[in-house]
Design a protein around this nucleic acid. Structure first.
Lengths: 212, 212
DNA sequence: GTCTATATTTCGATAGAC
DNA sequence: GTCTATCGAAATATAGAC
């Protein structure tokens, strides 16, 4: 396991031994993002200073500015990682009208991505206000964003009330549980988590398991 | 003197006309909390300054310090409002072992409180990182806190995996949907929302509706 | 209880050397 | 690409008059 020093060691973030080698292969830019992700997840975006990020990386605060234009720029880069995930899913879903069945398919795809992106997704959950502020900043006309797509679905008065609640509940059940997943579901394998989550989603949506 | 409408704030909080009279009856302390709640919900705790809070109230920033010792103190007071809600529910739930059925009862009680406390609950969802930081600050030994109670239940390895996921999912489905509730479920009556939410919870937990 | 004015601190960001 | 040193802004918080 990791050495006992979770203190502000100037150099090591205490990565698992196997990841130490990987870190050498990563660009400095990616290492900055990884450290930032950890800190934003743990302390929140606003309460994390550039000084802390630099400290954990072992170099000075000013050096960050060679790689990123601003603190918000780091945040945006993490937002882009999330955005890339959502694009994966949107492609599965054409412009067809949103049914409970297509919603289930969408969420199934989302759930599959959870194990590989748990920290990123949990960080988003814990910093919703900051993310929404960012969202306003980059007021994208092209709301290809998954979030936007989702919200507009919930708001669609043409859909029956029950269906809208089912969709919102299913989505929230998945994303919300992410917050607990690290600390509370320690013993669970990724496969267990994924399978159980999907079962819950299908319960909530009132559709049978996906006949893939 | 009470500075009735000397509000030169650029934008109105737009309180319902009937609430204007109520504001006269409230203590200044409560009015500060109400304005803070609105701003923390809209912009996030960290990005809301005391200057903005004071501005909306029509008096100066320094005046806030007569009523609260610090910004965090305002936050704590809102935390206490939430805490009071959770105590309501914990009393329903003794020290009995947690079953899916008792969990359903707990969440039903929680859902009933949603309409009257929507903003408060949504604000919490949007500021999870800040709330958890606060939680660490007041490291309460007596974890009578609802949140803590819940997390420890999810972590209980004695419970079957499926049950733990069901519980976490049901809770998250409810709290997460709060974020959407204001903007997306505008047309819905409180009764509809409450009933639908309860149905979803019982689906997720795999228990029939509460035979109350 | 509220004011004006100011202290204090922290942080994001920049300049310029190496 | 990283450093030291520093700037400037903004925020929290305090002092003391009214």
């Amino acid at each position: 396991m990791t050495p006992g020093r979770s203190v502000k060691a100037p150099r090591e973030v205490a990565p698992p031994p196997s990841a130490a080698a990987d870190d050498q292969l990563k660009t400095t830019r990616d290492r900055i993002l990884d450290v930032s992700l950890d800190l934003f997840l743990e302390k929140g975006y606003d309460k994390t200073s550039l000084r802390e990020i630099a400290e954990q990386l072992g170099f000075s605060k000013a050096a960050l500015y060679y790689h990123f234009a601003s603190k918000e720029d780091i945040f945006k880069a993490l937002h882009n990682r999330l955005h890339a995930l959502s694009l994966n899913n949107l492609s599965h879903l054409g412009d067809q009208t949103l049914t409970l069945r297509s919603w289930a398919t969408l969420l199934d795809g989302f759930i599959d991505m959870i194990p590989a992106n748990r920290k990123l997704l949990a960080m988003r959950e814990r910093n919703r206000a900051a993310f929404d502020s960012l969202h306003d900043t980059l007021h994208k006309k092209d709301r290809e964003d998954l979030d936007e797509r989702l919200r507009s679905s919930f708001s669609d008065a043409a859909l029956p009330v029950e269906q809208r609640i089912r969709m919102a509940f299913a989505l929230s059940g998945v994303t919300g549980a992410l917050i607990f997943s690290d600390e509370s579901f320690q013993g669970l394998s990724d496969e267990e988590l994924v399978r159980e989550m999907k079962d819950r989603v299908h319960d909530a949506l009132g559709v049978g398991p996906d006949p893939d």
